[in-house]
Every structure is written in structure tokens, then in C-alpha cells.
Amino acid sequence: MAVPRSKTSKAVTKRRQTINMKLTAPQLVECNNCGNLVQSHHVCPKCGFYRGRQVITPETKG
């Protein structure tokens, strides 16, 4: 059975762990109705359409 020769330092451990913690930006697609950039598989907050159908009525700021 393999046994490490010496203790792995905290810096080396944290450096190895942070490689897998990188955040990725969400994929944005153009809304078919208004052209607004929205996340895939989400309702457009600007016009309220999802897959060509009116799902919600967007609230107007007044």
C-alpha cells in the first residue's frame, strides 16, 4: 500500500482544490420574441415568452 513520504502542505492542497472550483458563466441565448439575452430553458423576464408562448405577464416598472 502506498504511503506518502511527507505531509502535503496546506498551500499545495488548496491549490489543487481550487482548480476544480472555477465558476463558469451561464450560457445565454437570444429570445425568439424580443431578442433579449436570457439563460437557456428560462422564461424571458422582459417579454414573458418561453418557447414561443406567453407564460407570464411581465411587470412594468412605473
Rank of each mutant, 00 (worst) to 15 (best):
M1W: 08
A2D: 12
A2K: 15
V3N: 12
P4C: 09
R5G: 12
R5C: 11
S6F: 12
T8N: 10
T8P: 06
S9Q: 02
S9C: 01
S9D: 03
K10M: 07
A11Y: 08
V12C: 09
V12F: 05
T13A: 06
T13Q: 04
K14A: 11
R15T: 10
R15K: 12
R15M: 08
R16G: 10
Q17W: 08
Q17T: 12
T18M: 13
N20W: 09
N20G: 13
K22Y: 06
L23S: 15
A25R: 05
A25S: 08
A25Q: 08
P26Q: 05
P26N: 04
P26K: 05
L28H: 07
L28V: 10
L28Q: 06
L28G: 04
V29N: 03
V29K: 02
V29C: 07
C31L: 04
N32F: 13
C34H: 01
C34T: 03
G35E: 01
G35P: 02
N36Y: 08
L37C: 09
L37W: 07
V38M: 03
Q39L: 07
S40M: 09
S40F: 04
S40D: 09
H41N: 06
H42Y: 04
H42D: 03
V43E: 00
V43M: 00
C44Q: 01
C44N: 01
P45F: 02
K46H: 06
C47I: 01
G48E: 00
G48P: 01
F49V: 07
F49D: 02
Y50R: 05
Y50S: 05
R51V: 14
R51I: 12
R51M: 14
G52I: 06
R53Q: 15
Q54I: 10
V55W: 06
I56M: 08
T57D: 07
T57Q: 11
E59L: 09
E59Q: 12
K61G: 14
K61C: 14
K61M: 15
